[in-house]
Computed example of a mutant assay.
Amino acid sequence: MAAEGEELSNKRIILEDYVVGFPTEEHMVLTLSTVRSKVPEGSTAVIVKNLYLSCDPYMRGRMSRPLHKSYTEAFVPGAVITGYGVAKVVDSGHPDFKAGDLNTSNKQLKFIILRGKTSVNSSFPQYLSYFLHDLSNARCTAYVGFHEISSPKKGETVYVSAASGAVGQLVGQFAKLMGCYVVGSAGSKEKVDLLKNKFGLMMLLTIRRSRISMLP
């Protein structure tokens, strides 16, 4: 049975081609499509409307031509660029979701049809955007890695690789708050300057291929 309900406008960002260097507007294109506001009768699909979308550093790596295996799959030219988001359920045929539920997951469209359980509801709608920064995957990785796995003590030396990255920035601050001596490394002078002047790390290393330089 065909889906009923209002016909809604749906925006999508498509990757035009693999990126070399810095991505520009020419690498992406905005397209418009439509989606019905009701799922077909008997379907277990879920239609959600994205409220927030996150643009994260790891997405740049996914825009490159895949030359080796990575922890996340590369984007495909001609396909939608996906990312993490917070969304509200518009309509649902799935028993685990009902209209009005709030959830977080990997989103790709303004309105997207999901099948299966993918998220956790939030009781704090005023803090929804927190799920894309303070409570995001990168932040949870930093917290668990530092406090529950490494568990350094005050006065110990903590080395943070890729200290200017989404995870590394927070680990460096956790270490400073703990009273540790923090050594960080990054791949360029610009990143090292950021770590020194803004984030206040004690010792910095520039790592570029096989060369390591220590900065005062």
Score class of each variant (00 low, 15 high):
149 I>W: 11
201 L>M: 12
48 V>P: 01
186 A>K: 01
65 R>S: 12
157 T>N: 09
123 S>A: 10
198 K>Q: 15
164 S>R: 04
182 V>F: 03
124 F>W: 08
39 V>I: 12
85 G>M: 00
165 G>D: 06
145 G>Y: 08
115 R>G: 04
24 T>S: 15
93 G>Y: 05
198 K>I: 02
24 T>E: 14
139 R>C: 06
39 V>T: 00
19 V>P: 02
147 H>D: 02
112 I>S: 14
207 I>W: 00
4 E>T: 14
161 S>D: 03
74 A>S: 15
128 L>K: 09
21 G>M: 12
49 K>I: 01
58 Y>H: 07
162 A>P: 02
126 Q>R: 09
44 T>M: 07
151 S>N: 13
136 S>M: 05
127 Y>H: 15
103 N>E: 13
85 G>R: 01
108 Q>G: 15
192 V>A: 11
89 V>I: 11
106 N>F: 12
98 K>M: 06
173 Q>M: 12
175 A>N: 03
129 S>L: 09
17 D>C: 07
136 S>F: 02
97 F>T: 01
142 A>S: 15
78 G>C: 12
44 T>H: 14
185 S>L: 08
187 G>M: 07
71 Y>N: 08
189 K>V: 10
153 K>V: 02
18 Y>V: 00
152 P>S: 04
212 I>L: 13
118 T>D: 10
144 V>C: 09
119 S>Q: 11
52 Y>A: 01
91 D>V: 02
9 S>I: 10
123 S>G: 07
86 V>A: 12
210 S>R: 06
35 V>P: 02
73 E>C: 10
49 K>M: 06
161 S>C: 08
118 T>C: 10
129 S>Y: 06
29 V>Q: 06
137 N>E: 11
210 S>A: 13
25 E>V: 14
105 S>C: 13
195 L>K: 03
165 G>V: 06
130 Y>W: 14
3 A>K: 03
37 S>V: 01
4 E>H: 05
177 L>H: 10
213 S>L: 14
104 T>R: 05
200 G>L: 09
92 S>A: 05
177 L>V: 04
37 S>Y: 00
187 G>R: 01
38 K>R: 14
171 V>S: 04
109 L>M: 05
165 G>F: 09
191 K>M: 05
55 C>R: 04
149 I>Y: 14
81 I>S: 03
2 A>E: 13
139 R>Y: 09
110 K>F: 01
2 A>K: 06
17 D>E: 13
31 T>R: 15
51 L>N: 11
134 D>M: 10
186 A>H: 05
7 E>H: 04
169 Q>P: 00
73 E>N: 13
135 L>G: 07
40 P>L: 04
115 R>K: 11
157 T>Y: 13
21 G>T: 08
114 L>D: 03
11 K>W: 11
207 I>R: 02
115 R>A: 10
165 G>K: 07
87 A>I: 00
36 R>K: 15
207 I>L: 12
134 D>V: 07
83 G>K: 02
129 S>I: 07
